[in-house]
Design a protein around this nucleic acid. Structure first.
Length: 325
DNA sequence: CATCAGGGCCCTG
DNA sequence: CAGGGCCCTGAT
């Protein structure tokens, strides 16, 4: 295990998301499994950030409301930040949390009174699909999720943090930072296998290699706004298939219509919300496309996420059955 | 004790 | 395009 580092240099930037904006509904996703690179409490959010070879801590405070959004972003670093770096990181945060989205506000206004979406929208208007991670980090998570149960995903990620990551202290928090692909690239596969990753060890190695060799350029990929084209690019990443590609299209690249693939367990849940029973995923896709068009995946997301928020507040027995660890 | 599915994907035929 | 195999774990 690496020894922890402390971040004391503080830079503050104000962010103004496009209204309506829901802070908690954006920075926290009740579907995501708990990982120790972030912490959330109402109105406050912390996470680590690897940026250009350095480790930072981010703190987001909600200082606004739905219609007058305002976020105080505090960047914590080891050394004094240059103005340029602070601006870069602020821009990155705006992108990752989809703060400048025009689609979400439009979606909210258009479907505020919709039979299915109305309640979810009214509870958390302006909630964004977030991707607090880099593409590389997001990939690691999707690999950890493949073909296993959540409990094991959590264990594997934690083992990786403790072997390759860095424990970071800032603002009274102690959180894990991710590693760069180079570290995995240099580590022997045996070492990864020892962390009980199974065949995922090979996947991580090959992905790290693709990143190190510059085969995957996140900024370039963000520039591709053609869904088919981007899917094709993502599919070239080893270990990425239809499920992960579709997840990333929506969750990471903000395609609100990426509904080509529905994970079985999510399909079961949304089928139950919409039709009161399990239905084939084609039926869900057809129905959502008909009703919500270009916002079909966002609609799916609002329905699912809202249910999980309710579940958090008061457990829903049938849902608990489906999401057992 | 053995078997098997679990929030996919790769590879082969 | 269908289907076996993959690491490992907990449930049965």
């Amino acid at each position: 295990m690496e020894k922890g580092i402390s971040l004391g240099e503080v830079t503050t930037v104000e962010l103004f998301p496009k209204p309506p904006f829901h802070f908690d509904g954006t920075v926290f996703n009740p579907l995501h499994f708990p990982s120790r690179n972030y912490r959330w409490e109402p109105g406050r959010y912390w996470q680590t950030l690897r940026w250009k070879g350095k480790t930072y801590g981010l703190r987001l405070y909600n200082l606004g409301d739905i219609e007058k959004p305002r976020i105080e972003l505090t960047i914590l670093a080891e050394e004094r930040l240059s103005q340029t770096t602070a601006e870069e990181i602020a821009r990155e945060v705006r992108w990752r949390f989809d703060l400048d989205s025009l689609g979400v506000p439009e979606f909210v206004h258009r479907f505020r009174r919709d039979e299915h979406l109305g309640p979810a929208i009214r509870r958390r208007p302006g909630m964004r699909p977030r991707s607090s991670l880099s593409l590389y980090e997001y990939l690691v998570i999707t690999v950890m999720l493949q073909n296993t149960v959540v409990r094991r995903s959590v264990a594997m990620l934690q083992a990786l943090f403790e072997r390759f990551g860095e424990l970071v202290s800032f603002d009274g928090q102690e959180l894990w930072a991710f590693w760069d692909p180079e570290s995995i690239h240099q580590a022997p596969e045996e070492e990864l296998r020892a962390l009980k990753l199974g065949y995922r060890a090979r996947t991580l190695k090959r992905q790290a290699e693709q990143f190190v060799r510059g085969k995957i350029d996140e900024l370039e990929l963000r520039g591709i706004r053609d869904k088919e084209a981007l899917t094709k690019m993502l599919d070239r990443i080893y270990g990425v298939g239809p499920q992960s590609a579709c997840y990333m299209l929506f969750g990471h690249f903000h395609f609100y219509d990426a509904l080509e693939y529905i994970p079985p367990w999510e399909g079961k849940i949304v089928g139950r919300i919409l039709f009161g029973r399990e239905v084939p995923s084609e039926q869900i896709q057809g129905y959502l496309t008909e009703r919500y068009g270009e916002f079909r995946r966002l609609a799916f997301y609002y329905l699912l996420t809202d249910l999980f928020w309710q579940h958090r507040e008061e457990p829903i027995p049938w849902l608990a059955e489906l999401v057992r660890l």
